[in-house]
């Protein structure tokens, strides 16, 4: 009975969507959207338009997003505070141990490269941060021996980096407010935008990329490692 109603409801919902589409409601709104691609280089100096939107035009939203990750890290750390793991008591073979040791440095370098070149190529702070967090996950999975958790960085250091990163983000934001007249102002602060496409360009965007990368990398590492330890 309940299943029947649920099925009916889902089918009706999808049907409404199909009717909307067939009725020709135009979901394409490209014309109405501000054309970021043809203004971002001039406004922000960033070649990667997504980075320009994230850290310049919509910087405040990105701050909210980073705060969300911070809150998640806090709550998960409160809910799952154990230091010993019950999940990861499997003994891995020597091949896995040495293979991961071989791969880890390259993955870390990739993470930092994605973060540092975020404004000139695909990538950015969030993407690179997730790559960095994956090194922590590798480490926690492979080098946890006998239920004793192992970290790339000690937990306290990780939390300190996370707090410092969010503080740096806020600092940059208020710096923009003081010198440029708007929270997270970039070009308005008078910072040189540099040659578009070079590593030192786009004003404050690389700095915010680095901060967001640290923030997301450490935050996700804390979340995953805390969930492992249950």
């Amino acid at each position: 009975m309940r299943t029947g109603w649920a099925l009916l409801f889902s089918v009706a919902l999808v049907g409404c969507g199909i009717v909307t589409l067939i009725a020709g409601v135009d979901l394409d709104t490209h014309g109405a959207i501000f054309d970021y691609a043809h203004h971002s280089v001039q406004h922000t100096g960033a070649v990667n338009v997504v980075s320009a939107v994230l850290f310049d035009y919509r910087g405040l939203d990105t701050l909210g997003e980073a705060t969300g990750v911070l809150a998640t890290g806090l709550v998960v750390a409160v809910l799952a505070p154990k230091a010993r793991t019950s999940m990861l008591s499997v003994r891995l073979s020597l091949v896995v141990l040495y293979g991961v040791a071989l791969v880890l440095p390259f993955v870390s370098v990739l993470g930092f490269a994605v973060i540092l070149f975020g404004h000139v190529s695909p990538g950015g702070g969030f993407t690179g941060g997730v790559v960095l967090a994956s090194t922590a996950v590798f480490f926690a999975v492979v080098y946890t021996v006998g239920g004793q958790q192992s970290y790339v960085l000690p937990m306290d250091t990780q939390k300190r980096i996370e707090n410092a990163a969010i503080a740096a983000f806020l600092l940059v934001g208020f710096g923009g407010l003081v010198t440029g007249g708007a929270f997270l102002a970039n070009a308005a602060t008078g910072i040189p935008l540099g040659e578009p496409g070079s590593l030192l360009s786009a004003g404050l965007i690389p700095l915010l990329n680095l901060v967001a990368g640290m923030k997301v990398g450490v935050g996700l590492a804390i979340v995953v490692v805390c969930l492992f330890s249950e």
Binding site: H30, I33, F34, D35, Y36, A37, H38, S40, V49, V50, A52, V53, L54, R58, D61, T62, E65, G68, V69, A71, T72, V75, V76, L79, A80, G124, F126, T127, V216, L220, V223, V224, C226, L227
Partner: peptide, 26 residues
């Protein structure tokens, strides 16, 4: 170019989705 704004919104949404999933699992 394809519009960059939905990409940025999707990036934000992915991070928040990952966070909310972690919270739910916890």
């Amino acid at each position: 170019y394809v519009s960059a704004l939905p990409h940025a919104v999707a990036l934000t949404a992915i991070v928040i989705a990952a966070s909310s999933t972690a919270l739910m699992l916890a």
